[in-house]
């Protein structure tokens, strides 16, 4: 499918290109913010599993550089200020955005990008160092990470839950009390167990579906508000919770399910909220786009701001092309 027909199929794909976002997922965070006012009074944010960086772009634009003609500004400033984010953030000196991913990420204005594993203990001091802080004082932790989906639903949901719990573990280490945590979640078979776990740490847990997230997808976002860890809880990346036993003593805890007073079975269903107004684009709808824009200029399908990251099978495709032979690589 060409980019022009994808424009019609996916209005957020087209919007993202027009507004200079690296991925359509930017609108999910924008719509979550519109519903939950997530960015209010936020000065320290950590973006986990950030690549290609569309959520960091949203954070940067919302918290750091607010401009009217965003595409032009970001396109030019990205090159200019790539290595000196301090210059931009000096407008609002207090704001710190730290973006983490295992994959390298093109720099963004006002965003500190780190290539690091969110589960690794050494990541915590690294994050704190860049936050210029020695204590947990982050206002918001966001994560839009998703695994390679295999098609085995139980495995895929497990891996996604592990990503979310890894993000939660890091969040418990850096969030200030009262801070918020937003993460992608697959609303699958055992999602009620995950909600239950999150409720232990946050006063309010809501599951939210932005209108820009397709209705046919099992993806949604947990919005966890007001971080209030249980008394005596010691966050640590050496000894993360609910990601399998890390020592002998953990085993008993891992084979009995967590429970809440109002969810003794270890299952609890979070309230559901849709984010985004009905007047906004419907990500499931097919749109008939006019051939010309409001000024009568013929509509041209623009290129994505950043081409998709190289897939792991890129070399395999190159091999096949090089060898020809109808795609057969056998000798």
């Amino acid at each position: 499918m060409g980019k022009s027909s994808k424009d019609k199929r996916d209005s957020y794909y087209r919007l993202a290109k027009e507004q200079g976002y690296r991925a359509r997922s930017a609108y999910k965070l924008l719509q979550l913010d519109a519903q939950f006012n997530l960015f209010k009074d936020v000065t320290r944010v950590v973006d986990l599993c950030a690549a290609p960086g569309s959520w960091s772009q949203v954070l940067s634009r919302s918290l750091v550089a607010k401009t009217s003609n965003e595409r032009d500004i970001t396109a030019t400033t990205e090159k200019k200020v790539a290595d000196s984010p301090v210059e931009i953030s000096s407008k609002k000196p207090k704001v710190k955005i730290v973006a983490l991913d295992l994959q390298p990420m093109t720099p963004l204005p006002g965003v500190i990008t780190l290539q690091a594993d969110i589960t690794h203990p050494s990541t915590l001091p690294l994050v704190l160092k860049h936050l210029e802080s020695d204590s947990a004082n982050v206002d918001l932790v966001v994560s839009d990470g998703a695994p390679d989906v295999t098609g085995l639903h139980d495995l895929d949901e497990y891996i996604q839950a592990q990503l979310l719990l890894a993000a939660l573990n890091l969040a418990t280490c850096v969030l200030r009390p009262g801070g918020n945590f937003v993460a992608k979640i697959f609303r699958g078979r055992d999602v009620a167990e995950l909600y239950c776990k999150l409720r232990i740490f946050f006063e309010r847990v809501t599951v939210a579906k932005p209108r820009s997230s397709r209705g046919s997808s099992i993806e949604a976002f947990v919005v966890c508000e007001n971080y209030t860890p249980p008394e005596g809880f010691k966050p640590s990346l050496e000894n993360p919770i609910w990601t399998g036993p890390t020592k002998k003593e953990d085993i008993a805890g891992q084979i009995t399910e967590v429970s809440l007073e109002d969810a003794p079975s270890g299952r609890w269903v979070a309230p559901f909220v849709v984010c985004g107004d009905l007047s906004e684009w419907d990500s499931d709808a097919t749109y008939q786009l006019p051939d010309t824009d409001e000024n009568g200029v013929k509509r041209v399908s623009i290129d994505p701001i950043q081409p998709p990251t190289a897939p792991p099978y890129k070399t395999a495709i190159e091999m096949r092309r090089r060898l020809g032979n109808g795609g057969k690589i056998e000798e």
Partner: peptide, 28 residues
């Protein structure tokens, strides 16, 4: 799935958690 090895002894007379033996992972 976290690169951890556990052993389990199928001894129904002892509590569940005690049937497992835990080997620390060289890399979780």
């Amino acid at each position: 799935a976290h690169n951890t090895i556990l052993t389990y002894k199928h001894d129904l007379t002892i509590p569940m958690a005690e049937r497992f033996k835990f080997y620390p992972s060289p890399e979780r």
